[in-house]
Design a protein around this nucleic acid. Structure first.
Lengths: 327, 327
DNA sequence: ATCGAGAATTGACTTTTGTCAATCGTGGCG
DNA sequence: CGCCACGATTGACAAAAGTCAATTCTCGAT
């Protein structure tokens, strides 16, 4: 790869400025260009990810509530955003924090599984560029062909781009029209292989979906309002990687779930580090279900949700039913 | 590591400033402190590693290496060609890159000194035509009368033609049969004047030669295999503008060198911009010698050579002998 | 050769950041 | 209880960085 002269000078300016700590006018002098150009090049370097600036997320796991959640749920680490001067709207801050946490969690050579949805997309969007080696990003579930704004493959590819990693998509639709077809497709070697990659992941990133009329699965066309009602009737409370789960965190045995191409829940649970991100207050119930299903080991959410989570856990504990929830 | 309360505010300031891109005064307002404090906290955050600013190593690894070489050798600019789709054989790309680098470096009215050799000839060959005014191209050393393919005057004239410049040759053989004759010739006013032109050059272009059996100096007939062996015995490792240099970059005091008509090393070093071009892996040792002799300010070579160069420099530095190499 | 569109570059100006002496607050000690 | 010492904080100024309209350069089309 012969360097283009244009990039060369941008990189050089960034090197002198950030690595050597020269001032812009010194850089300009060295490169025989105007200081204004240096400022321009530096901006480009930042935008192109030649320079990475990351901030420690330590601040958000110092909360007492975060500690209590970790203990109560047996989680590895919990990060909480509380409202205050720092974050006028905590929910809006969640993807930003999640992006930083995610970057801190990804190590060189990792294989990372990502699900999809509005939350995951927002995280991808907030993520800064990072300089990882040998990372691959794989989809945890099938795709949606429709021209929906947050397509699974877009999430995957965008995150891969930011990590300078390889993106691997699943070449199948998320939801098929019949059980039989889905079963057949799952047995296809290509698809089989792609889904098997999941358990070999080093970490995973996902959110949990709700089962409301305006929820993601409905709006993206995977689930019709009529089906939705039936599924809720049967005990569905949330969505993990496209599949419906019951309140106890188990796979719901329903027609819809049988028509899905997605990672097996056991395969997901085999991934050592699994980051769950929850923004919306409405996701409390689905989140509780995900907890019961032991879907995640790390959590980023708002203090408000954490509070309500703890209330619910304590209530359960008082009723003498701690077995399921406190792992 | 429980954070001290004092660290909390540093974290917050860093988060708002670096992750959210607020200005210092905005951060100050949010945290109810003075902007001066924010500036102080941010400095601490950087020093404590709460924020991490790094330049990408993977995405621009050849650029990184170039920057490191520049730093280690105190060079003005280093350009590297690495293998890739564009250049299956990086060495073959070197003259092409060198030609465009050279053209960028030549300004109207410049006097350019060129040495000769296969590399320089290849550069001349790869050079596109440019419309410079008042440029003159002068030879850095005497000529070879023999019908050798890459004659010094051919290099000079070809480059002059491409630059629309005036070519000035040295009207003397490169190597004479006796010390005395060479000394006499050097005192000739015409020759004297021609060699004196060298230090008045604005830039120079050259490569460094090896001292192998099949090397340029041998094949062109300047040096017999027997003489070659003797010279290597005496510590010769490379050739600059027809003259043999030792590993430390100094002129080798030998019979051959005394019979040469070429530019004085101090005159060459007086030229402000000096472009060294190295294609072949075998030239590592001669190149190291040329570095020690501070013969060049700009370098075009392959990533492979750069890598080995850095290894060697680091090895030297570890042995506590950095004085010579890191200028 | 000439022209013009679009990109790159720059000088001049504004905004933001860095610095430091002066001030404030706090805890230890006589 | 007052006083001192010392780190934290700040206001004011200097330095550096950001911005943008004007200019120059580039390159392709006529």
């Amino acid at each position: 790869m012969t360097p283009r002269p244009a990039d060369q000078i941008v990189h050089k300016a960034a090197w002198l400025y950030y690595t050597h700590g020269l001032r812009q006018d010194e850089v300009a002098q060295r490169l025989n260009i105007s200081r204004a150009s240096v400022a321009l090049y530096l901006r480009r370097a930042r935008e192109a990810g030649i320079v990475n600036i990351s901030t420690s997320t330590h601040l958000f796991c110092t909360d007492m509530m975060a500690r209590r959640l970790e203990d109560a749920l047996g989680l590895d680490t919990v990060w909480l955003v509380s409202e205050g001067r720092l974050a006028p709207d905590p929910a809006a801050e969640v993807p930003v924090l999640a992006a930083s946490v995610f970057l801190e969690m990804v190590k060189n050579g990792d294989r990372v599984g990502v699900a999809w949805g509005r939350t995951v997309y927002a995280i991808a969007d907030a993520m800064s560029y990072a300089d990882r080696h040998g990372v691959s990003v794989v989809e945890l579930c099938g795709n949606l062909g429709s021209p929906y704004a947050y397509r699974p493959d877009q999430c995957t590819m965008e995150i891969a781009r930011r990590l300078n990693a390889q993106g691997l998509n699943v070449y199948a639709p998320l939801v098929l029209s019949s059980d039989a077809l889905a079963r057949g497709l799952r047995e296809e070697p290509v698809i089989r292989e792609q889904l098997d990659r999941v358990s070999a992941c080093d970490m995973a990133l996902f959110s949990v979906g709700t089962l409301a009329e305006d929820s993601h699965v409905v709006r993206c066309g995977a689930l019709s309002p009529k089906e939705l009602a039936a599924i809720k009737e049967m005990g569905g409370v949330g969505v993990i990687a496209g599949q419906v789960i019951a309140a106890d965190g188990t796979w719901l045995d329903c027609d819809y779930n049988r028509r899905i191409i997605s990672a097996d829940f056991d395969a997901i649970r085999a991934i050592p580090r699994r980051l769950m991100v929850v923004q919306e207050d409405e996701k409390l119930e689905p989140l509780l279900a995900a907890i019961n299903g032991r879907f995640f080991t790390h959590l980023v959410t708002t203090a408000r949700i954490a509070e309500r989570l703890l209330e619910r856990l304590n209530a359960k504990a008082d009723e003498g039913e701690p077995a399921r929830i406190s792992a």
